[in-house]
Nucleic acid binder design. Structure first.
Lengths: 194, 194
DNA sequence: GTCTATAAATTGATAGAC
DNA sequence: GTCTATCAATTTATAGAC
């Protein structure tokens, strides 16, 4: 009987810790030994929950992608003027980032070194394509300036959203609503047609 | 006498290749064997030029930081209204990104795993502080909206600039001027006082 | 300036006990 | 669900020849 009786891990609670360490040290910079130390168990203990280090990455990336794609399926993302659908997707993306920060952070840092990572990159490109279609539609509907390249605007707006993972911390001084409001003000308002 | 007589590497030309591979696979995801393969020489050949893998990273990060800090020393970054100094720094940062893309990309991906990386992160924070001071001064001078948090605006604007490394490629379809113009339009114009 | 050969340490993963 | 013990492969780095 160990002196400090820690609650046993489920695969989900183990994944939470693993993703935190992956973000701190980078996926490739994290060894199974590092994970074991952070978890307070041995390396072999991890293999009871998952078959490999890469499968931990796969589970994490799946979760992040599912949360982002769910936004595109919301009614407000497919109904009404494109400019409003776009604002909805931007705001909800910030909220997903708030709710799933470690998972989305990991997704945004993937380089494509393994099949798992390449698959995630392909899904990210699909998300980008669907947002770019919204920007294009908003220009066509006359709500966004037509003197700016729509593909470039898409990249800048979602570049800004994605850059949040570098500093935003849930429960910190800045609330998710203030961040989303300011981001919409800074990015979309510069693009709107007067 | 080898059948294909490749030109010998200087430390600088070797660093160019190393930084390209670091960006493709991530620094931790790159082994000295990977570098050797990309260079077309053996692992031990690399150690003639540098004493360690980490020293390659250090040289690359130094170069990126020097290019960025040089912008802050330009006359246009310290003279005139803060709003104009800010636009100058934003535009020139995009140009530095264009000129030194692989080096800046590497800098922006550093996690702090080693002393070399921690030192680079500290220098990045110093750059952020100096830009934040410009945004604050621009609000004080009445040129930027005072209903938005200046620290948040700083982060969003430079988050947008930094996100360029994820897709911008020098010599591609989009020129550096068009990108800089659109970026200033999208970010700064949303923040200006009417 | 690059090579072959090799060392010492670390890595991801497995077998089998409790 | 976690442990000890262990392995094969890979990693960073060095010694010394050409």
């Amino acid at each position: 009987m160990s002196p400090v009786q820690r609650r046993a891990y489920s695969t989900a609670s183990l994944l939470d810790v693993a993703v935190r360490v992956f973000n701190e040290r980078g996926y490739d910079g994290t060894s199974m030994g590092d994970l074991a130390a952070a978890l307070g168990i041995t390396k072999s203990g991890i293999y009871h929950h998952v078959p490999s280090k890469e499968s931990l990455l796969g589970l994490a990336l799946e979760r992040a992608l599912a949360a982002l794609f769910a936004v595109l399926e919301e009614p407000a993302a497919s109904t009404g003027r494109a400019r409003n659908r776009l604002e909805h997707v931007v705001r909800r993306s910030v909220e997903v980032l708030d709710a799933e920060l470690p998972y989305v952070t990991l997704l945004l840092r993937v380089r494509g070194n393994t099949p798992t990572e390449l698959d995630a990159l392909e899904h990210r490109r699909e998300f980008d394509r669907r947002v770019r279609a919204m920007v294009l539609a908003a220009v066509d509907e006359g709500d966004l300036r037509d003197d700016l390249d729509p593909a470039l605007v898409t990249r800048l707006v979602f570049g800004t959203v994605n850059s949040l993972v570098e500093w935003y911390r849930p429960g910190g001084e800045l609330g998710v609503d203030e961040v989303a409001d300011t981001l919409v003000a800074v990015t979309l308002e510069g693009v709107e047609r007067d």
